[in-house]
């Protein structure tokens, strides 16, 4: 039995050592080790964010790691934040799968002296340093202006949305105000609840187009309904030709980008997840390396803006070079 135990210990220790990467935390020359915590780990969007985080860290010789669940479980994210604090990382960027669930973990991290910020999805009630991400009102505004440029006062818009979400409400407010500012005659004709589901989006958008034949634009106010909305235009025979309904997506997924190049979608609202990662790292790096004077708002930390950092959006249309860039997934 002793022989078995000794062999097992030796084998397991060997395995741990063999698979171990360079011990970055112990590397004295390292500019620190920073963690990013996401939900839906492995999704293209957050892979872009982590690539930005990683690339920004490399410019100053810092190392990074990505943690978090492969699903929507925000409690697993909270545990990942706790784990990174226990590990002793120099800063954490977290996207909150649920704003409230992350509050206690973010507060505990800040109390432990680990600078922590949110990106893409905020946790405004926490003590996070700041939020780095898309300002939803401004993003909606950019989409509204693009529609006004395309159709002017003749724009008749149907909106595919999930009701009750603050982020979508802000996008819609920005969209409406900026569109009507440029084209006062433009109108939102109908709003439908796609419940964040592709098939549902096809059903409700088809019904919306049948009931409101004057609609010439479908504005998808979040990432999920674009494919369903496009199918709806096919269902009512307005996929192409003079009565074509323009579909404005809100996604940088490959099928949507390819659809723009094939003239299926008119445009997409592209957030910049890569820049979210880059800016998140530099904010954390600045917070973790105080200069002569501490931050006024967060004593003990270096300087970061107290206002949120808006990474902005771009409206991508056919031929935009950014589409080709997004079509090449990052290496992480």
């Amino acid at each position: 039995m002793m022989q078995f135990t000794t062999k097992a210990v030796a084998l397991a220790a060997l395995a741990v050592t063999a698979f171990a990467p360079a011990p970055s935390m112990a590397d004295e020359e390292s500019a620190g080790h920073y963690g990013m915590v996401v939900f839906l780990r492995g999704s293209e969007f957050f892979n872009w964010s982590y690539a930005g985080f990683q690339d920004a860290a490399a410019t100053v010789g810092a190392t990074t790691e990505l943690q978090g669940p492969a699903d929507w479980d925000a409690s697993a994210e909270a545990r990942a934040v706790d784990q990174l604090v226990a590990k002793g990382v120099d800063g954490i960027a977290v996207t909150a799968g649920d704003a409230e669930t992350l509050v206690s973990s973010i507060n505990a991290a800040m109390a432990a002296g680990v600078p922590t910020l949110t990106f893409d999805s905020d946790s405004p009630n926490s003590n996070r340093l700041l939020f780095v991400g898309t300002n939803n009102y401004n993003a909606g505004c950019a989409a509204g202006r693009a529609v006004a440029e395309m159709h002017g006062d003749n724009a008749r818009v149907g909106v595919s949305l999930i009701p009750g979400l603050d982020s979508i409400n802000a996008r819609l407010a920005g969209f409406t105000e900026c569109m009507q500012e440029m084209a006062p005659g433009a109108q939102i004709v109908a709003e439908v609840n796609d419940e964040g589901d592709l098939q549902r989006a096809e059903t409700v958008n088809t019904a919306m187009l049948q009931a409101n034949p004057e609609i010439n634009v479908i504005f998808c106010s979040h990432g999920n309904p674009a494919t369903g909305a496009l199918a709806a235009t096919r269902n009512v025979g307005r996929f192409d030709g003079p009565n074509k309904v323009d579909v404005m997506a809100w996604s940088i997924d490959v099928p949507i980008l390819q659809g723009i190049e094939f003239d299926e979608y008119t445009a997409t609202v592209a957030q910049n997840p890569y820049m979210m990662g880059v800016m998140s790292f530099f904010m954390l790096y600045s917070a973790a390396n105080p200069t002569q004077f501490d931050s006024l708002s967060n004593p003990g930390f270096g300087h970061v803006p107290t206002a949120d950092v808006d990474t902005g959006v771009a409206i991508l249309r056919k031929g935009d070079p950014a589409i080709q860039a997004f079509l090449s997934p990052p290496q992480i």
Partner: peptide, 8 residues
């Protein structure tokens, strides 16, 4: 976690 959520 200080919150209840369907995804937990």
């Amino acid at each position: 976690f200080g919150a209840a959520h369907w995804g937990h």
